[in-house]
């Protein structure tokens, strides 16, 4: 509980330059299977939409133009989705430092979150049905900051996820 040694920070500017840089941490990318998972999810919705369009085309026999417009729109949309998946799998990544965990996600809207270990409430590893099929796990990191600062790292090999979970748990208790 001892108050911060204020003497250390009399000069903000100089100190900051020598601090560890979060930007320079080399992030680990997610498992290749994560891309597969994203593609599977997209493909499932693609099937549904295409089915819907096919059914609709029977009723819209007289409106060829509308049909092709809608069809074209969905082709573009899903084309974009697959490309987005590819970019996500390429860009998303996590990194562990001595005192915090960094997670970067998003393609169009990139978001990098840094969560210090001494602010993590708990960690858990979760797998849904698809995850089990593909043999990957999601690591969930919970903070008191609510959904905004919680971090979910999907597409990790189960061993990595468990190892990370254990490592983080240990560091949390080290701080508590």
């Amino acid at each position: 509980m001892d108050p911060v040694r204020s003497g250390d920070f009399s000069n903000l500017e100089v100190d900051v330059a020598s601090l560890p840089q979060y930007e320079q941490v080399k992030l680990h990318s997610l498992s290749k299977k994560y891309l597969l998972k994203l593609h599977i999810n997209t493909s499932i919705s693609l099937t549904f939409f295409m089915g819907g369009i096919l059914v609709a085309s029977f009723f819209l026999a007289g409106y060829q133009l509308i049909f092709w417009l809608v069809f074209g729109f969905f082709v573009l949309l899903f084309g974009w989705s697959y490309y987005n998946n590819y970019q996500l799998a390429k860009r998303n990544g996590y990194g562990l430092r001595e005192r915090d965990v960094i997670y970067r996600r998003g393609f169009i809207f990139e978001k990098v979150t840094v969560v210090p270990f001494n602010r993590i409430q708990h960690v858990s590893v979760e797998r849904n049905f698809l995850d089990k099929l593909l043999n990957i796990s999601t690591l969930k990191i919970f903070t008191a900051g609510g959904s905004g600062s919680d971090v979910n790292i999907p597409g990790l090999p189960p061993e990595t996820a468990t190892a990370l979970k254990e490592e983080i748990s240990e560091r949390i208790s080290g701080h508590a």
């Binding site: 809207f109 990139e110 978001k111 840094v114 969560v115 602010r119 600062s149 971090v151």
Partner: peptide, 28 residues
């Protein structure tokens, strides 16, 4: 502070501009 997020839409990248979010247990 609970965590800090640095957000960057694609179109901010070239200009080197970001959005910041400071997360706390009482809101962001």
């Amino acid at each position: 502070l609970q965590a800090v997020s640095v957000r960057q839409p694609l179109w901010y990248k070239r200009r080197g501009i970001v959005n910041l979010t400071f997360h706390s247990a009482g809101g962001d």
